[in-house]
């Protein structure tokens, strides 16, 4: 059995979450942004499973299954939206969609 302290396991999950967050903020390609969201959801699920294994309860794994369902539905809708976006704008740059931007504040 793993006897690594809980702090280090949580640290691993937080680092993964942080990488996903940085990827989401830095990348402008919308496919990469969706992938970063997947990384973040996965690390959240990792925290649940770690906690469930630490306290020997089933709840962590049950929550991971729910996170899996959420991730699957999120990614399917997101990819359909990406297809529509590519259909309209012919680009994958997330900054291309600025029709709602206030024109008066635009520099």
């Amino acid at each position: 059995m793993v006897t690594v302290s809980l702090d280090i396991q949580i640290l691993l999950a937080s680092l993964l979450f942080l990488m996903g967050l940085v990827g989401l903020l830095v990348r402008r390609n919308i496919i990469f942004m969706l992938m970063s969201i997947e990384i973040m959801l996965n690390s959240a699920g990792l925290v649940f499973v770690i906690a469930g294994a630490h306290w020997i309860q089933t709840d962590g794994q049950v929550m991971f299954i729910f996170i899996l369902a959420i991730a699957a539905s999120e990614v399917s809708v997101g990819l359909a939206l990406i297809l529509q976006m590519y259909h309209h704008y012919k680009t994958l740059d997330a900054d291309a969609m600025n029709k709602l931007k206030d024109k008066t504040t635009e520099s």
């Binding site: 794994q61 299954i65 899996l68």
Partner: peptide, 21 residues
Amino acid sequence: GAPFIAALEVIIYAGAIVVLF
């Protein structure tokens, strides 16, 4: 100690979601 979750991770994440991408 979560073998079922490990299998789900491979099947659904690495299998289904990445294939969608």
